[in-house]
Amino acid sequence: MQNYISQQNFNALLDSLISQGKRVVAPRTNAGTVLYEPLANAADMVIDQLPRRSGKEAFFPLCEDIMTYQKEGQKIELQDIDPTRFLETVLVGVRPCDAAAIPVLDAVFSWDYKDEFFLERRKKTTIIGLACTQADDACFCTAVGLTPADPKGADLFLTPLEGGGYACETQSEKGEALVANNKELFAEPNGYKPLPLAEPQTGKFDLKKVKAWLDEHFEDPAWDSIATRCVGCGACAFVCPACHCFDIVDEGTEKQGKRRKNWDACGFWKFTHHASGHNPRDQQPKRYRNRIMHKFKYYDDKFGQTLCTGCGRCIRLCPVGIDIADILQDIDKIEVKVKVEENS
């Protein structure tokens, strides 16, 4: 169902949700950086920029407690965290590349082990997506099968209109409920013109061809030329809406403490460092290879999906300019060459 909402009414909607005790998470400025964070007022929302980190943290936070322990004499007490206490949340202003990643993550978090933290937050969150009207030459959603107006993952999807306000399209029961409960703020969509959509400036590549090449080239000199310069940080994984590796640590004293789940990154040397001292990924190109393989081969093999939505964050933020879109375009070209050779 399509509706219209003015910017003013949209802010009123968010303020009313906040006053009902809901957690409203939206892009806002924190010490100069735009991040998805809980809002105190709708007026704090910064809707015209892609946040520096992705929307995944509304479900999979950077760091969360998963258990606490206490020890007194011989008595040891373990306490689980109760996910039913998580707040009802509305995640707002989510760009197509961020929203689309969330159903992709559902696959891994509800696979052999059901991650109760992720799934409970997922159940309690309504996602309001937003079409993009601006893109740069790091954006490449259109090359991985999405568009700047793709509602995938959103419960309610907004398209900015000329002269302000949004066209909103409900995408799920959650989205319908949100509109039904706030009917007075929405109007008929008559006579409004959407703003022109963003045009990502990155060339396309064929995901099937990329995967076909990856299937055969776990060992290849290309990995060295791609990633010898990688310095092995966590920037690319941590800003990515689809990366989901985590590490479990126990922190505290001998008397009391917490077990925590923290984001981890395959770029770190420690990621596959065994207790024996052996590291099967002993050099940076092997670590970077995993990043590409996991996104464009392993996740596809296992779940039939691609673990990249083309948001371009890793391209903008890699300290040494490693450009995943460029790599995929190059792989796409290599495969063509192989085929030509075979035919001749």
């Binding site: 924190n30 950086t33 991040l35 940080c233 966590g234 920037a235 941590f238 984001w263 770190f268 300290p319």
Partner: peptide, 12 residues
Amino acid sequence: SKCIKCYACRQV
């Protein structure tokens, strides 16, 4: 409070 411990600062 914004630090995500990505250690990009250290690695470069």
